[in-house]
Design a protein around this nucleic acid. Structure first.
Length: 279
DNA sequence: TGATTCCTGTCC
DNA sequence: GGACAGGAATCA
């Protein structure tokens, strides 16, 4: 499941290949990924445009596309659970099943950008500059914007519900998903069901530090590959073996050795250590 | 605020 | 052969 570190790793792997390149043609093989926009409209909107910038907000990737002067558009990509973006250099083979390959951008001078998604939850969206803000998450991105304890305090202030549910809300903070929310709470020593208004200043500081630490470490290892995730050049992430609680229910906590426990929070499986993260 | 929906591969 | 995985939109 690509979360902030995975999407940022994809961005970094694609940027040197795509920046300044012009799209020769765009093909949509399965229309549901473009949210109803037909293959013809997609091709018309993208063909001949130059990729001028590739940036990220939360789990969203945004391609800035220019054609002539001032006629800018944006291609917004969300990979959801199993989506992949892969750049293939000229002549490189794509061996994945065609039924899961949903869109292809061919670049002038050769090379292809492929959108692949087994589960078909991922989306490619076209937007005009004025529409962008409404399509991207409103919350603070810890890596792009930075995150201080005061920022987290503002984001969580007066919010009801448990910390796990709050950390998953992209309108408060964007980029955390199930893996890194669990890992950040473990690093902070906070139970997933603790409420925001119960946090002492020191706990808020620990949570801030936990979020920043797990994101930067995961980024340094180019993300977490459990099953599906690959970067834009097809590489696996290396952070999975450093996860402390996520996916480790019943196994020993990496910090204290107690058995990791699974619970349900905000409709998601949530792993925590009952000793490191007391209720 | 919580349940439901979208999807398909994987695992028991 | 059925439960489960889950991000975010949608709805009760």
């Amino acid at each position: 499941m690509p979360e902030l570190p995975e999407v940022e790793t994809i961005r970094r792997s694609l940027e040197p290949e795509l920046l300044g390149r012009r799209i020769a043609s765009a093909t949509v093989h399965h229309g549901h990924v473009t949210g109803g926009l037909g293959a013809r409209a997609f091709q018309a909107a993208l063909g001949g445009r130059t990729i001028t910038r590739l940036w990220r907000r939360g789990k969203y990737l945004v391609f800035d596309l220019a054609r002539n002067a001032g006629l800018e558009r944006h291609l917004i990509c969300h990979l959801r659970m199993t989506g992949r973006l892969r750049y293939l250099r000229p002549g490189a083979r794509w061996t994945e099943a065609p039924r899961h390959t949903h869109a292809t951008l061919r670049l002038e001078g050769g090379g292809r950008l492929i959108f692949h998604d087994v589960r078909k939850f991922g989306r490619l969206t076209l937007a005009a500059p004025g529409e962008l803000a409404g399509l991207l998450p409103a919350g603070r991105d810890p890596v792009v914007d930075g995150l201080a304890a005061a920022d987290l305090e503002r984001a969580l202030r007066a919010r009801r519900g448990g910390l796990k549910a709050l950390l998953l809300r992209q309108d408060l903070l964007c980029g955390l998903g199930n893996i890194y929310a669990d890992e950040a709470l473990h690093r902070a020593g906070l139970h997933p069901a603790r409420t925001a208004d119960s946090l002492q200043a020191a706990e808020l500081a620990r949570l801030t530090a936990g979020i920043m630490a797990v994101l930067s470490e995961a980024l340094a290892f180019r993300g977490t590959t459990l099953l599906d995730y690959r970067s834009g050049d097809g590489e696996r992430g290396g952070f999975a073996e450093y996860l402390r609680v996520y996916g480790r229910a019943g196994r020993p906590c990496r910090a204290c050795g107690s058995a990791v426990v699974a619970m349900r929070a905000a409709g998601r499986t949530t792993a925590f250590c009952p000793r490191c993260q007391p209720g």
